[in-house]
Design a protein around this nucleic acid. Structure first.
Ligand SMILES: NC(=O)c1ccc[n+]([C@@H]2O[C@H](COP(=O)([O-])OP(=O)(O)OC[C@H]3O[C@@H](n4cnc5c(N)ncnc54)[C@H](O)[C@@H]3O)[C@@H](O)[C@H]2O)c1
Ligand SMILES: NC(=O)c1ccc[n+]([C@@H]2O[C@H](COP(=O)([O-])OP(=O)(O)OC[C@H]3O[C@@H](n4cnc5c(N)ncnc54)[C@H](O)[C@@H]3O)[C@@H](O)[C@H]2O)c1
Lengths: 216, 216
DNA sequence: AGCAGTTTGTGAAAACATTAACGACTTCCT
DNA sequence: AGGAAGTCGTTAATGTTTTCACAAACTGCT
């Protein structure tokens, strides 16, 4: 069953949750069908790219008609495992960690932060966004079978905490610290480096001029 | 002067701030030279890619020696315009906005959030992370020549606020809302979609198995 | 029933990005 | 001084992603 899945390009895989979200929007608006052109305008992805992306999963649409919203939605729900919730742990309940706990990725989402850790006694024992904050000393004991961790500790703690998370059995880490962490080959890491995103935006702004503003 | 710059691949441009940060680290550790291999281990980018990236700017290194840290650093400082600060405005001082204001991208960075806006009277007039929070009604009046905006409002407000920002003269937006905003062609938008990042990580975890864990 | 208009799915091309491989040159050890 | 080891910059090969463009197939109207 996974044999074909492995062949989906990574770029496509990253767009799937985006498609899923907008299909949900369309569905709750009562829309019954949608064309790649319409979807393209909504998600800002070229319509040919959308058709190509969908085609990796077979022929999901109908020529001259487009895609049936309900069918597409239920297909992606299965594909994205939207029916089972993935447990997530958050380490470092500071500025960023608190924001994530309050948000908790609840809308259209199959992930849930179930437990949080911090080193600061003042935070331990409190509840943030409905999630209990535990002491980081108890990490190994309390993390159980959680597979995914969000890392929002100070960057000096990033590698030590990563090592502990890996030892405790975590297999994927979403790293928000500026540190580039080292993990064994079986652990997947995605970096979200907000400073770099901002700096890159400024760089593009200055060095990659866009179309001139049009008069009229 | 910008003629050659335009040809740098976007993928390279996105890595420049990362290189810059690690060169700074090396410099403050007192390191005088660095090879592409060493840098590769630190930033987790293939060493051939690093050499290729650097080569777009000419011959910055020396065969058999590597790169002079100080020289490279001063070169990138110029290239990334680290000497002039870009003013940034933040719209929406909620969970995420507050975290950003407290952090304010101050370390090794040429950007600074100088002004923030919110619609909530309770927040207006307060100071968060040293930045004054203004009422969003005064946006047009107070934003002046700020070129970059960070958008952290509720998603229903994303498009209306974008339209106002664009009208007020902003030319780049870093959008954290799940909405895909529409802008005129001369405005640059980068989306950072945290829900999608988390969902994509989970998808990769389940469908793109990595190397098996090794015994011993 | 027939036809004009629409939209998919995909082969082929183009664009973009990474990685391998190696000649040329430098360093530094003995 | 000579040679082994190290490292860059680049050419070529490879891999990935996007985009074009169109036949085939469907819709919906008359
Ligand atoms: N806040 C932002 O906007 C922002 C932007 C970009 C990057 N970051 C990065 O995200 C990370 C977190 O940023 P922040 O602003 O939330 O920092 P913060 O200082 O507000 O929060 C860090 C939290 O981690 C806790 N902590 C420290 N050591 C720990 C440990 N060993 N185990 C568990 N918890 C520990 C601290 O008690 C604190 O609550 C930092 O690495 C920062 O560089 C933050
Ligand atoms: N917090 C997270 O972890 C997180 C994660 C992913 C995405 N997001 C997205 O980021 C955005 C902000 O999230 P949040 O958790 O900070 O929400 P929030 O509700 O805490 O903050 C939104 C802030 O915007 C202000 N606001 C509302 N309308 C406004 C307007 N017209 N002009 C100016 N300010 C206005 C509100 O007063 C509030 O302070 C949302 O779109 C959310 O979907 C947040």
């Amino acid at each position: 069953m996974d044999i074909e899945q492995t062949k989906i390009p990574q770029a496509t895989a990253k767009r799937l949750p985006l498609y899923y979200r907008f299909l949900n929007n369309l569905h709750s608006q009562g829309k019954l069908r949608v064309s790649s052109k319409e979807l393209s305008e909504a998600v800002k992805v070229d319509s040919a790219t959308i058709r190509r992306d969908f085609s990796y999963f077979g022929a999901l649409g109908k020529k001259g008609y487009g895609y049936n919203v309900e069918y597409l939605l239920s297909f992606f729900r299965k594909t994205l495992d939207q029916d089972e919730t993935t447990k997530v742990a958050l380490v470092g309940v500071g500025n960023l960690g608190t924001a994530f706990l309050n948000y908790n990725f609840t809308k259209n989402n199959n992930t849930r932060i179930e437990i949080a850790f911090d080193a600061d006694q003042k935070r331990v024992g409190t509840e943030v966004g409905g999630v209990q904050v535990e002491h980081v000393d108890d990490l190994e004991e309390k993390i159980n079978d959680t597979a995914v961790a969000i890392l929002t500790v100070p960057s000096s703690e990033a590698q030590p905490m990563t090592d502990r998370l890996v030892k405790a059995g975590v297999s994927a880490i979403l790293n928000f610290t500026p540190a580039r962490i080292t993990v064994p080959p079986h652990v997947r890491v995605h970096h979200i480096d907000l400073s770099i995103e901002l700096q890159a935006l400024v760089y593009f702004l200055k060095h990659y001029p866009l179309e001139e503003e049009q008069e009229g």
